[in-house]
Structure formats: structure tokens, C-alpha cells
Design a binder for these strands. Sequence first.
DNA 1: ATAGTATATGAGTATTTAGTCATACACAGT
DNA 2: ACTGTGTATGACTAAATACTCATATACTAT
Lengths: 111, 111
Amino acid sequence: MLPLEKNQAIDTLEYSAEVLKAIAQPTRLRIIELLRDGEHCVCEIFPAIGHEQSNTSRHLQTMLKSGILNQRKDGLKIYYSLRHPEVLEIVQLAGLIAAHEATERAARFAK
Amino acid sequence: MLPLEKNQAIDTLEYSAEVLKAIAQPTRLRIIELLRDGEHCVCEIFPAIGHEQSNTSRHLQTMLKSGILNQRKDGLKIYYSLRHPEVLEIVQLAGLIAAHEATERAARFAK
DNA sequence: ATAGTATATGAGTATTTAGTCATACACAGT
DNA sequence: ACTGTGTATGACTAAATACTCATATACTAT
């Protein structure tokens, strides 16, 4: 998210869209799932999700700027954690919809 | 969402991301809000949101393909409606996060 | 100071996205 | 058949996205 000074007129709609966009990506969903059990540093995350360190760092920055992550520096390492439990609820709801659609399509395919 | 035949191996993660991406856009959020009170045709939606008919139609197609909308044809008009109540829950949760972030930033700015 | 480790970021690329304008398509009424 | 209305879509553009490689930055330990 951009600095406040440049975006004082940004409305809740745009803000909500930015938050959702920060979640709506497979790699970032994987990271969110990883963070479900608490904070992790980049060095733990990027091997776990099978992406480059730089790519992982960028995704974390995206989520950090959107406001859905916290950052904690400890020496060399930087630990990220989920800032809002609502994010997990959103992921869960999206999973419900996805599962429902998947079974519907499977049924349609079987006909 | 792409036709099933070409995507049998698509996993829930990708599916969830697609659903969330279909929601995570300001214009589409406006449309979703409009559909909160029931089905509307394109001819009602595009003047309400202040976008072109073609643009509105494209957004509706995006959401339809992702599986979050229903479509009902009635003569010339095509009515769209929300297919999953969970979509409204997701929008509400995103709004909570956005509101929280907005007040945090306002406070930080006031310091 | 030097070397090593963890993270962020500049620069580049390929793809996707949101939008526009013009046009095609589908259905209704005459 | 013709006209009009509602919707979808082809073609295009500008901007954003996800990714890579290389490099810079920040901190630690020796």
C-alpha cells in the first residue's frame, strides 16, 4: 500500500481490493498457510514453498505493504507473521467456494 | 475459470486464488455490492457503477467464469446474481481489515 | 577490516489485467 | 424481413504482475 500522504482519499473499496489482491495469488496463499502456525523468516519460507529467495521476499513485501503481515527483525533474520486473523477466515471461505465449484464441475463432467 | 477438460489437475490453492482474484478488484467489488440485494441485469449494473457496458460485461464474465456468479437469461436481458453467500462474507472481512489499516495509518499520520 | 549470511531491490521479460471503441450476436416487436 | 435493444467479444493499449538474475544492503562473527 502506498504511503498515506499520497492516498488520503483512497476509499474502503480500493483498500479492500488491495487487501484481497494481496491474498489472491497461489504462492502467497502458500505463504499464508505456512504462517498459520506463527512467524517464520524468509530463510524458512522460501525453501518451503520452492521459490527463489528474491521472489519470496517480493511476495512478503506485497503482503506487508497491504497491511496483512507483521515484520519483526531479529539480527540477520526478518520474521513475518499474520497480522489479521480475518485473513485466515478469508482463505477458508475461498477454499469452501473453490471446493464447491470443483465438485460441481466434476459432476458436470461425469454426466 | 477455464473449462474442466483442460484443467483437471488444478488444485484447491489455484482455485482459491482464482476465486479471490475475481473478487479483488474495485469495480467488481462495486458490482458485488449491487448484487447483494438480488439479481440485476447488465443494463442496470453498468449505469449504476459508471462504467461502459462492455467493461461491465467483461467483469461479469470474469466473475461468472470463476464461479462466483449465476447467470439467468430472460429475453434480451441477462440477469446476474451471487452464487455463494461466502463471497459477501469475504468482502465483509476484507472491509474489516481495510478499516483497521486505515485507522492505524491515520493515527500514525497524526503523530 | 573481512568474510559470510539473510534480506531487499534494480533491471529486464513475459504474461495478465482493466479499460476503450467498434462490431458481432441474440432476441423482440412490428 | 427489418429495426431496435441488450449483451458479448475482437482488437488494441497502458499499466500491473510474477518471475529471474545480479547486486546492494544490513547485520554477525572472526
